[in-house]
Amino acid sequence: MVVTSRDVARLAGVSQPTVSRALRDDIRVSEQTKQRVREAAQLLGYIPSEAGRALSSGRTRRIGMLLTDLDSQFYSHIIAPVHRELERLGYQLMLHTETADNDTIVERLLANGLDGVILATTTIDSAAPLRLRDRGLPFVYFNRTGSLVDADATVVDAAPGYREAVRAAVDLGHRNVAAVLGPSNTSTAQHREQALRAALGEHGIVLDERLVRRVPYSSAAGEIAARELLESAGEPAPTLVFCGNDVVAYGALNAAHRLGLRVPDDLSVVGFDDLPEAAWPIIDLATVGFDIAGMASASANLVVRRIERPGDELERAVFASSFHLRRTLGPAR
């Protein structure tokens, strides 16, 4: 026999609507009554219907996270902290994966009855934020931001981490520097390149455009670009390669190995993100990092706040970066 809210109401000695309000933590219900209803529900093994809640509140309490960069290892590390924070706030995480940011994405998001969306792989020119705004679906940017619509966002300030990394590299004698950066249609790649060039400029180092490649954030793309760059660089050859993220850096390490270059004896490599794998002894990647889990949790809080308090001012949560010196950065040869 299925236990209903009416059964809970009879046991608690309240009306059925009071049961619904009490289990939603409605401020119109006293704490004493809420406790009595919760105890009755627990005793009877009552599980509130999500569909019923949605009908009564006008919300599904489901938050979507949109990922289009399905091969990136970075995003596997943000799903768990976002899920945990949304669960704490009484929401469910619904993962939406697409192979491209196209015209059908927003319609699919809307069709799933979401209360809000976390955009995790937005490109600068994406129209999805514009369509979400026009359809009235709250959203926040995670890590990457779009240029067409301003919205709540969690982003990384790459400048302090790059200043530390470049200072460490200069102290080790590096002057001939190359870079395998991220795709130019992402805000992360643009910001990181600006921060890197500024940090190098403080030491009188100019990043030669001949020694720069811009590629998708993947190890395969990183390996191809790094190998082509190193083979065509000429003399003096670069002694250090800065990479757009750790995944690209893994590819650069593979390229160095295939070319017979020892890291860091012949070539140093620096990444960005400080993924957990970067600290593995077999990789031990020098990298610029930030609080990935904290930023993921912040994005969950921002989207819930936007849903529950739509009139609040937009918030941009900025996370500082720092440099982690490891084996792949050594003295210049």
Rank of each mutant, 00 (worst) to 15 (best):
A278Q: 11
V270E: 11
D312S: 13
V263D: 00
G289I: 07
D274T: 13
D266Y: 08
S268H: 10
V304P: 01
V304L: 02
F319T: 08
I292Q: 06
D266S: 14
I307R: 02
V288R: 02
N301M: 10
L267K: 00
P276T: 06
F290H: 14
L314E: 06
V270S: 11
A298I: 02
V269H: 04
I307M: 09
L302K: 04
I283G: 14
I292L: 12
A279N: 04
R309C: 12
L302N: 10
S268C: 05
M295Q: 14
V318T: 13
A278M: 06
S268P: 14
D265A: 15
D274I: 01
E313T: 13
M295T: 00
F290A: 09
A296N: 03
F290E: 07
D291F: 00
V270K: 10
L314D: 06
L267R: 02
F272G: 01
T287M: 03
I307D: 04
G289D: 07
A279T: 05
E313D: 06
D273W: 07
A279S: 14
V270T: 09
R306S: 12
G289L: 09
G289K: 08
W280M: 13
V270A: 13
P310M: 00
S297E: 15
I307V: 15
R316F: 07
E315N: 09
G311C: 06
